[in-house]
């Protein structure tokens, strides 16, 4: 027969077990994945379709931060409890983050199975994390100014374009930084030939500089510039909108890659969910949806886009081979000197 004392002890033990187990049950029910993501059309599609479907499938909530810049916020959050689980950023920022130990060095198909289906550039040695999409940086130009379609990066230096060519404030924009490296390749010995790049940059003056791609789109659309450095998505997304006389050209020397890279923070408390999110973003159906919404080239080889997107985006191994990936680790290590030098070159 169970004594009153034994019964009380057993009851207390069960209660304690229940109390200890409860937090984990509650935790499992309310898992939250903290991510960064872009705004604009991309953000609309993510919030309307992509993220709700992920939340439903993985029984979690996703907290998405669209307020740029992300890296300073990650920098000041504790490494063992970071403000984000998944960092979505361009490649140069991912390299800055990895140097400070804020994101993982490498993600493989073991953690994210869909990596097995991506183009090699998506996980090349120029990438930390995984590329989910890329854009091609080339030349945008007005088709109503009597200009021939540019075929080389050198066409931007055409004297006829003095004051009507556009570029970026190099210290604050990765397209400007990539273009500087491309000047080294086109006019010198390679992407790291900074002396040749500086000389070529000087020759581009007078040039109108902006700090973000949206502003370059606006300058091209308003004819404030006739030709400018821009990514293909920034031109193609206006297709059919009031018949804008703007087109994109891929120079023969190659186009620069503007990768959309996902990476996981080492201190994330929901790492498995973070990997599942990256895997989900690489699924062909998700890739197709986002690629066609914002004209990004999908990293997954198995994605079949509709004909009009397939014709213009980088969707075959041959087209992907024209992509040039800058060495951001090399660039970031010299960044302060480069910033000072280009500021002096372009000022005045």
């Amino acid at each position: 027969m169970i004594s009153r004392r034994k019964a009380l002890r057993a009851g207390a033990g069960l209660a304690a077990l229940a109390t200890m187990g409860a937090p984990s049950i509650v935790h499992a029910q309310t898992k939250t994945l903290k991510i960064t993501t872009w705004g604009g059309k991309w953000g609309e599609v993510m919030k309307a379709t992509v993220l709700p479907a992920f939340e439903k499938e993985f029984k979690c909530t996703v907290s998405a931060d669209q307020a740029f810049p992300f890296l300073p916020k990650l920098q000041v959050s504790p490494k063992n409890d970071p403000i984000y689980d998944v960092l979505h950023a361009n490649s140069n920022e991912q390299w800055n983050a990895v140097v400070e130990g804020l994101v993982m060095d490498k993600i493989t198909a073991k953690e994210v199975p869909n990596i097995a289906d991506v183009y090699p550039y998506a996980v090349s040695d120029k990438i930390v994390g995984v590329t989910i999409f890329t854009s091609a940086i080339g030349l945008g130009y007005r088709t109503d100014k009597g200009l021939a379609k540019p075929t080389s990066w050198k066409d931007l230096a055409d004297p006829k374009l003095a004051g009507a060519r556009g570029g970026y404030l190099i210290p604050v924009n990765s397209l400007g930084q990539a273009h500087l490296m491309m000047l080294g390749k086109v006019y010198g010995k390679g992407l790291t030939d900074l002396d040749a790049a500086y000389k070529a940059l000087e020759a581009l003056k007078p040039i109108k500089l902006v700090d973000f791609t949206g502003q370059m789109e606006k300058m091209l659309l308003s004819a404030e510039v006739s030709m400018g450095v821009i990514h293909d998505s920034g031109v193609y997304r206006y297709e059919g909108a009031n018949m804008q006389p703007v087109d994109f050209a891929s120079p023969s020397e190659g186009v620069l890659a503007l990768e959309q890279v996902l990476n996981v923070t080492p201190g994330s408390k929901v790492k498995e969910l973070a990997f599942a999110y990256i895997d989900y973003m690489l699924r062909p159906d998700v890739q197709k949806l986002l690629a066609e919404a914002v004209w990004y080239s999908p990293a997954n080889r198995k994605v079949k886009l509709d004909a009009k997107y397939d014709a213009k985006l980088l969707t075959t191994p041959e087209k992907v081979a024209t992509l040039i990936q800058p060495d951001w680790k090399w660039y970031n290590a010299r960044r302060e000197d480069i910033d000072a030098r280009v500021t002096k070159i372009l000022k005045g």
């Binding site: 810049p69 890296l71 210290p171 604050v172 960044r335 910033d339």
Partner: peptide
């Protein structure tokens, strides 16, 4: 802004 936002 440059130092915070892009040079970190």
């Amino acid at each position: 802004a440059q130092q915070v936002g892009t040079s970190f």
